[in-house]
Amino acid sequence: MADASKPSLDPSRRALLVGGLVAAGGAAIAAGSARSQSAADPMAGHDMSTMPADPYAAPMQGMAHGNMTTVGLVDHNRNGFDPTAMLTDWERGTTELLPDGRTLRTFEVDAIDKEIEIAPGLFFPAWTFNGRVPGPALRAKEGERLRIVFRNLGSHPHSMHFHGIHSARMDGVPGAGLIGPGEEFIYEFDAKPFGCHLYHCHALPLKRHMHKGMYGLFVIDPDPERHPENATVAASRLLGSPENAHWQEMAMVMNAFDTNFDGANEVYAANTVGQAYMNEPIRIDKSRPVRIYLVNVTEFDPINSFHLHANFFDYYDTGTTLTPTLRTVDLIMQCQAQRGILEFSFADHEDGMYMFHAHQSEFTELGWVGMFDVRSSAK
């Protein structure tokens, strides 16, 4: 029997995304649902071509998962970042030569309070790095000297904690790079080890700073000269090399948002905007292999996952090896801060829309789902 002394649970985790994202209200959503069911059922007897266009209807991309897409579109210009552009928007900073001949690579990162739109009509009061969630995807080369000029333009103490190797003085914890509003700190350390890493704020309470958006991808490319036994593979990961140019590389950060601050997420995504890659599928040239730098920063859920439809991939856990740690798999799980590199090819596939998503069904239904639009290079 229910305990009358406890408030009833609000089934808002789905209601928020399905029923409460747009001012159009339930009637528009119900109409969209009816159309999806009719299209999926050949016995329904409805001629879809004669139905009037609905200005509130979501893009009909692939009709996947019963066409469970959000109603309307997020204004990426207002957000100041676009999930599609984020896939390939690597921040490389500025470089100069040090007296010892090494490269000094400098990044500039600001903590900024900013409201962002995470699903159509649904806004979230984020804490950001450089005004975007996730923060800029920092990318460097193994062995370089890194300098990160961090300025806190926000309203709370913040830091940058890098998952890499560095001194205690550069750890981004209290007394080692945690700064108050209006302050500046310079982190400096060598780029090692190579791999797929991340950075995030390490201020307390940590779970609040994480789920508010203070995280980003941090990739260190291997130096082929340091890995002669796997120089070709290392070169394929080195941004700007001829070998790397053959690859289609993408940065994906799996994240989620607790919009009513009840300790549970209502919207899930890769690169922040729910169902962004359903509304705008990712174009894939089937003649070139695909490499995804994947990191999970989801708060409040113990794990997240990535599942690829109709294909398999090799996986490099943490990206610190040049040989796969898993071969020929179609699903991997990551706890928070876990990351890795996925490599796969559609060379032997027919053209078409191929889905990818979390394999926790609730995450998929609440936004963490997308499509690869696989095409021949000539198309």
Rank of each mutant, 00 (worst) to 15 (best):
C196P: 06
G213H: 00
M214R: 05
A203S: 14
P228V: 09
I179T: 02
H200F: 01
P181F: 02
P193H: 03
H227V: 08
G182Q: 07
F218Y: 15
F218T: 07
A191D: 05
A176T: 12
A231Y: 12
P174F: 00
E229V: 06
F185E: 04
E188W: 03
D223V: 09
Y215L: 00
G195N: 04
A176Y: 07
P181Y: 03
E183M: 07
D221A: 15
G195R: 00
G180D: 12
K207W: 13
F189K: 00
P224R: 06
M210A: 13
H200L: 01
D190N: 07
P205V: 06
G175I: 02
L204K: 10
G175Q: 01
E183H: 08
F189E: 01
Y187M: 03
I220D: 08
M214H: 11
F189S: 01
D223G: 13
L217G: 12
D223F: 08
G216D: 12
G182T: 08
P174D: 03
C201E: 01
R208D: 15
Y215F: 15
H200D: 02
F194C: 05
P224W: 11
A231D: 14
G195F: 03
G177K: 02
K192M: 10
R226F: 09
F185C: 05
F194Y: 14
P222T: 14
M210C: 10
G216E: 06
G195E: 06
L178G: 02
H197N: 11
F185Y: 14
P222V: 11
H197Y: 08
I220W: 06
H200M: 00
R208C: 04
L198I: 11
G195Y: 05
A231G: 13
N230T: 13
Y187V: 04
P193W: 02
Y199Q: 06
F185M: 04
K192L: 10
A231M: 09
D223L: 07
K207V: 13
E188I: 00
K212M: 14
H200I: 00
H202Q: 09
I186V: 15
G216F: 09
G182R: 04
G195V: 08
